[in-house]
């Protein structure tokens, strides 16, 4: 298949950036979007041009590294996939495809399509854990977790931290990411001891990073590669209320 690509090129954080046009010729319909970029890059390098920088690693939808905006859609115009999982057969031969980086204030652009998502690390540092030192753990089966609760916690825990929620949110809000962790740990007995401090400090850090607020459009849920539900946001809100007013 042949495509015409419009790709955002930006030398570094300070550069203004612009779109450049490339031809992607003879692309297999089975190739992923990233593999198509590999082919384009190969051509660029061979003629001594700067390759298009993009984040990627596992290429099987779990590491959360990849994340670009394709034709206005985060991870592409379809739902519930990561960029590396998106195959070219979902496009038509001859299509013009526009590729740009995530645009979120809290994810500054490093180069081309690569953004800095370390804000997520800092949010996790604020409270996305259970305080237990190595060696302090009690026998695992002493902590019973009903299957239903464990399953719900797992639904939330599946988040790959790709940032698609914030990138697709018109408010650049990271509520789904933060809620997934808050909700997972609020559901499990292990996380209950620190639930109050956790939600308050994680939300405070989220605000500090410059993410927007939730305006309940639920675009994040529709786009999330792991289909993390906005009901976890509801739980986080509840946790927050409880932390603020409860004892």
């Amino acid at each position: 298949m042949d495509f015409k690509l419009r790709v955002w090129r930006q030398k570094n954080r300070g550069d203004k950036g612009r779109f450049e046009t490339y031809e992607a010729k003879g692309i297999s319909s089975e190739a992923s979007v990233l593999e198509m970029l590999d082919v384009v890059n190969r051509g660029l390098v061979a003629v001594g041009k700067d390759a298009i920088a993009f984040d990627h690693d596992c290429r099987e939808g779990i590491c959360g590294s990849c994340g670009i905006v394709i034709n206005g859609g985060v991870h592409g115009p379809f739902e519930h996939n990561t960029t590396c999982e998106l195959r070219m057969r979902r496009f038509s031969d001859g299509d013009t495809i526009t590729i740009e980086p995530f645009r979120v204030r809290a994810f500054p652009i490093i180069k081309d399509l690569v953004v800095d998502r370390t804000a997520f690390d800092r949010i996790m540092q604020a409270g996305g854990y259970v305080t237990v030192k190595t060696g302090q753990a009690p026998e695992a089966n002493n902590i019973a977790v009903p299957k239903k609760i464990a399953d719900e916690a797992m639904d939330a825990a599946q988040c790959v931290g790709c940032g698609a929620c914030a990138a697709t949110c018109p408010n650049g809000s990271a509520m789904l990411f933060v809620a997934a962790k808050v909700s997972q740990l609020a559901l499990l007995p292990q996380g209950k001891a620190e639930r109050k401090e956790r939600v308050l400090s994680m939300v405070a850090q989220m605000d500090k990073e410059g993410f927007g607020a939730c305006s309940n459009s639920y675009a994040c849920e529709a786009k999330c590669p792991k289909s993390v539900s906005v009901s976890h946001i509801a739980r986080m809100n509840r946790e927050f209320l409880r932390a603020g007013f409860g004892s």
């Binding site: 237990v132 302090q136 753990a137 695992a140 089966n141 797992m154």
Partner: peptide, 18 residues
């Protein structure tokens, strides 16, 4: 034991055990 204490959501039986 360590991972469970950290909140790793391992699969569970209906009774709540691993």
């Amino acid at each position: 034991d360590q991972c469970v204490a950290q909140g790793v959501p391992f699969a569970r039986e209906y009774g709540g055990s691993l």
